[in-house]
Nucleic acid binder design. Structure first.
Lengths: 189, 189
DNA sequence: ATCTCTATGTATAATAG
DNA sequence: TCTATTATACATAGAGA
């Protein structure tokens, strides 16, 4: 289960090469995007795969072309402005989605609690549970809520972190949320 | 002398950002060249630094130009297709998060059911609930699961809907599910 | 083939000079 | 600020399902 030191040469084995290609392609794209985000620069990567007919391009063909077409660098301020706008857009989007989720969660929870109550009150089998009473129901309601709370607590944490900056734990979460938001934006736009 | 977990956002500190930029730029170029050599594919990377007037290009400006020229010559529809790559990347990322959530949800659910069982068996008040037996427990377990299932069912629905496009109703759901998934992944991970 | 797991190599954040 | 060092996070080769 060990890992050999990598020999820097064409991988002979066909399937091994493909596996490596996929892994490293993914890693590369991640690196590019990280560099771009962390340092606020534009960057792109193009990979011609032997397995796909078309090259893999990040962030997009247009961007890549634009990036390379302008061999003279953009004024820095413009770049930053552009990036800020994009980030602001994503943040806004995330905020909206958070609200939606929150509302939906609340509604669902209420529904479920109501249903649970009904079950207990009308309970089959002589209503043993019904007689067991409030504390049982409460305990179980609590159970039902555990899941729902996980999400919301997280949101609270994010908000609490909140002078606009995020703690180190939260940033990943935020990052993921933003990724999701971006995808959603793509799907909806 | 430790190394903190990296926060995926623009590095505020100016000199730190520059240092990171230089390190990561170098690393990125190395990755590109490794991928190219190991897998025998052509690839290029372009990075616009805010510090250099001209972008850093690998393997060479000429090669990159040639590589990107091929992109330029693609029919526009193909270009648009390729434009989806960033989105595809994000989607892939989200898909993974979904998996994580799913796994975690399952684990959590088991934990909770176990706890519920204990409660019922050791139940206070003469064990009315305990005697009420399996069907009560089952019903309640079902309740507990509702929350956990909500996200997954929606995912299923999406998949079933599934030629890759999403109906207008599903779009919103998708948004909620993905945001939730991301947040939950953060909370659980 | 494709995914997962994990031991290990590699990249790099923080620190020192 | 740049370079070197080191501890730690991250990427991934190889193996198994």
């Amino acid at each position: 289960m060990a890992r050999k030191k990598v020999k820097l040469a064409l991988i002979a084995n066909d399937s091994a090469r493909k596996a490596t290609f996929n892994k490293r392609k993914k890693g590369l794209i991640k690196k590019v995007s990280e560099l771009s985000v962390l340092c606020g620069v534009s960057a792109c990567a193009v990979v011609y795969g032997p397995y796909e007919a078309r090259p893999i391009v990040w962030p997009s063909a247009q961007d890549a072309q634009r990036v390379l077409a302008r061999l003279k660098s953009l004024p820095e301020t413009e770049q930053n402005k552009k990036m800020m706008n994009q980030e602001a857009f994503l943040r806004q989007r995330v905020a909206k989605l958070r609200e939606q989720v929150k509302r939906q969660e609340r509604e669902n929870r209420e529904e479920e609690l109501k249903e649970l109550m009904s079950r207990c009150v009308d309970g089959e089998g002589g209503g043993a549970l019904a007689r067991a009473g409030v504390e049982e129901v409460t305990a179980l309601a609590c159970m039902v809520e555990v899941k729902a709370k996980a999400v919301q607590e997280r949101m609270e944490a994010l908000r609490r972190g909140g002078d606009g900056r995020f703690g180190k734990e939260e940033k990943l979460v935020l990052g993921e949320a933003e990724v999701a938001a971006a995808v959603v934006a793509g799907a909806c736009g």
